[in-house]
Design a protein around this nucleic acid. Sequence first.
DNA 1: TTTCCGATGTACT
DNA 2: GTACATCGGAAAA
Length: 185
Amino acid sequence: MLWVHDLDAEGRPLVLAGRIVETEAYGGSDDPASHAHRGRTPRNGAMFERAGALYVYRSYGIHWCANVAAGPAGEGTAVLFRAIEPLVGIDAQRERRPKARRDSDLGSGPGKLCAALGLDGADDGRRLDAAPPGELTRVVRVTAGEEPERLVRGPRVGISKAVDRPWRFAIAGNPHVSSPRRTLG
DNA sequence: TTTCCGATGTACT
DNA sequence: GTACATCGGAAAA
């Protein structure tokens, strides 16, 4: 589960969360498809933090995409959140994604899930292992869920290098997994 | 349903 | 200038 705890416009607690149903792994300097491949820049610095830091970047100049750093400090490995199944605060997530017609339009893509959960550049570098939600502090965290029945894997989406590495993972048959689904499993 | 394409920040040639 | 870890609207089928 991926959680965002915050306050709404009237100062009341707001909780948005969803089950992580799809991810992609990105390596460090040895992975030509990774933003970390060419070393640290102002944008990708959070990738090089020790495991647990959020890396949020702007994609195609428009959307936000969120990763979590996955290695020791300086390595640059990360996991991209590619899709969530919205479970908590669905109405509030719909308000943030008015284009969504079905629940499966809310988080079925890396840009979509950031919009639904309100993740943006202000969250870049935030730690996912921070203290439990407090009164005034925005908190983003990940918690373990039940073991999925079946995981499928396939090539990563939207890349042109290292396309042979099957580092995209998803829960088989879950309707909230992003398109394209064909190359999975 | 599938295919095509425009929007546009950041990094690189 | 070009490429890019994307999305959604329009057109085609």
